[in-house]
């Protein structure tokens, strides 16, 4: 009886997962087919078909041109994001636990949140030139706010009862930070990092397209200028693939280290 029940539940879950994967595959296939049909119908130089784009992508992947661009772009992104992670987590913790800091820093956070960050790019470049530093600073500014806000929101969910309970068992200040505040805010910290990473990728591409023609942004501009629509689309696909892969990696990490969080706020 029991076994049968377990068995049924097990296959039920598996079936559900298979159905979901199937539907997602179907969705992508429909999109690719629609794209291909539309391109054939328009028969324009400006819109390559799906097959043509994939062929261009395969050719691109075998050249050093693409990989050098990926490497160059990601240097700035990785550095800027890492800096944003460190500062964002520290700022979020500070603002979440210390009211004067929150009051003092709130205006700046709101300004950064409200300003279209592309408007900052010319200023940063005027101040720091066209080198790596300016690109690092820009990806940093793209990612910082969302990380800070999420860490701070995570701390606001810490129940004062947990703090009192820990104190009653003799917790020291450092134990409180490690075992209650940071531990409790961990899912929110990871969510902040995931969203910050998405921002950093968009910062990296924006700056390369707008002012510092370099890396993937430069490839995109080059192919656009040469009306090489196959390779242009292929390069954009590479950017999309990188962003999606990074986000999925973080989502997987979140579920692994914070299984208690269940259905998170942001999915």
């Amino acid at each position: 009886m029991n076994y049968a029940l377990n068995g049924r539940l097990g296959t039920g879950r598996l079936a559900k997962r298979t159905t979901r994967a199937g539907l997602q595959a179907l969705s992508l296939a429909t999109f690719a087919l629609g794209w291909e049909l539309l391109a054939r119908r328009l028969d324009s130089l400006l819109l390559p078909g799906f097959v043509e784009t994939i062929a261009a992508l395969v050719r691109l992947l075998t050249t050093s041109l693409l990989w050098e661009a990926v490497w160059l772009s990601n240097q700035a992104m990785v550095l800027g994001f890492s800096l944003a992670a460190v500062f964002g987590i520290l700022l979020g913790l500070l603002m979440g636990r210390w009211r004067p800091a929150a009051r003092y820093l709130d205006p700046y956070l709101n300004i950064l949140l409200a300003t279209p960050k592309a408007a900052l790019i010319p200023i940063v470049i005027m101040a720091t030139g066209l080198g790596l530093l300016s690109r690092v600073l820009i990806t940093f500014s793209y990612a910082l706010v969302v990380i800070t806000i999420n860490v701070r929101a995570g701390l606001s969910l810490i129940d004062p009862g947990w703090i009192e309970m820990s104190r009653s068992f003799g917790a020291t200040e450092s134990q409180l930070w490690r075992k209650v505040f940071i531990r409790g805010a961990f899912p929110a910290i990871l969510t902040g990092l995931r969203l910050g990473l998405a921002r950093a990728v968009s910062g990296m591409i924006t700056v390369e397209l707008l002012l510092v023609a370099l890396g993937l942004g430069r490839l995109i501009l080059d192919f656009q200028g040469r009306f090489d629509s196959g390779r242009l689309y292929a390069t954009v696909l590479v950017v999309v693939a990188e962003a999606v892969a990074l986000l999925q990696l973080f989502r997987w990490l979140e579920r692994r280290v914070a299984p208690w969080a269940g259905n998170g706020v942001d999915r």
Binding site: W162, E164, M165, F169, G170, A171, Q175, K179, A258, W260
Partner: peptide, 24 residues
């Protein structure tokens, strides 16, 4: 102390919660 609202840590399983005072 035993608390009215239990004050259990939601991220920790039963054993880890029971051991929390000893952990501290």
């Amino acid at each position: 102390m035993v608390f009215q609202d239990f004050a259990l840590l939601p991220w920790a399983d039963v054993v880890t919660n029971v051991a929390f005072g000893l952990e501290l």
